[in-house]
């Protein structure tokens, strides 16, 4: 390959990285806005998240197209192969995170029409941790840093513990005050969405480890 061809490949890989990071940024923004909307009972913000979802879906398709072009035209190998492979697997995960944010937005809009329930500290803490994890996972991906990715993965257990706590609290509330059961159930769904986002962030970290170390740690933990 000539230097000119290498330059083109590097430019294409950089463009792919930029696009997937943009998708990551959009997913992060959707999650941040929806948690803010939930806390502040801001229906307009929740609707804005839903309206923006098409843009995120489109970004995922663009990442796919770019990656397919690189596979077909450049036949990447070694670190380039691992990078493009990781990006193609990461894009749908990020899109899924944004979908969960949308599901939270729908639940939030419904909740905003109801009287406010007790403030669930653990639920909001789940959202904060999910956001911190997502930001750190994208940072580890950008720096090709498997050590940082592994640190992020460890935090998934924090979300899981909080989810168990929220789950028990809400079940208890449903039993104590059956009139609030519908609202409790919506909060329970929100907690489940946040718990799933933690799992998806873990998937992103696994892909970063693969990209950096060629080690497949999926289903290991």
């Amino acid at each position: 390959m000539s230097n000119e061809v290498h330059r083109h490949l590097d430019e294409e890989l950089d463009a792919l990285r930029d696009r997937v990071l943009r998708l990551g940024g959009e997913a992060e923004s959707a999650l941040r806005r929806v948690m803010h909307s939930l806390a502040e009972r801001d229906t307009a913000e929740a609707r804005a998240v839903l309206d923006h979802d098409d843009t995120i879906d489109q970004l995922e398709v663009e990442v796919d197209r770019q990656a397919i072009d690189i596979f077909a035209l450049r036949q990447p190998a070694a670190r380039d192969l691992r990078f493009v492979m990781s990006v193609t697997k990461m894009a749908p995960v990020l899109e899924r995170i944004a979908d969960h944010a949308c599901n939270i937005a729908r639940a939030a809009i419904d909740l905003h029409h109801e009287p406010q329930l007790k403030y669930h500290v653990s639920l909001y803490r789940m959202g904060e941790i999910a956001l911190e994890m997502l930001a750190a996972a994208l940072d580890a991906f950008t720096k090709n840093d498997a050590v940082a990715a592994r640190v992020v993965m460890e935090r998934d257990s924090e979300i899981n513990e909080l989810y168990n706590q929220v789950f028990h609290d809400l079940i208890e509330m449903m039993a104590d005050e059956p009139a609030t059961a519908q609202r409790d159930a919506r909060l329970l769904f929100i907690a489940k969405h946040l718990e799933r986002i933690g799992d998806y962030v873990t998937d992103i970290c696994e892909l970063t480890v693969f990209m950096a170390e060629a080690a497949i740690i999926k289903h290991r933990h």
């Binding site: 592994r150 993965m153 460890e154 998934d156 257990s157 899981n160 989810y163 718990e195 799992d199 873990t202 170390e213 060629a214 080690a215 497949i216 740690i217 999926k218 289903h219 290991r220 933990h221």
Partner: peptide
Amino acid sequence: MSTTSAKIAPKFEVK
């Protein structure tokens, strides 16, 4: 739900 362990080591190596 997935749970993380303290040590995450590669399970599968390229064969």
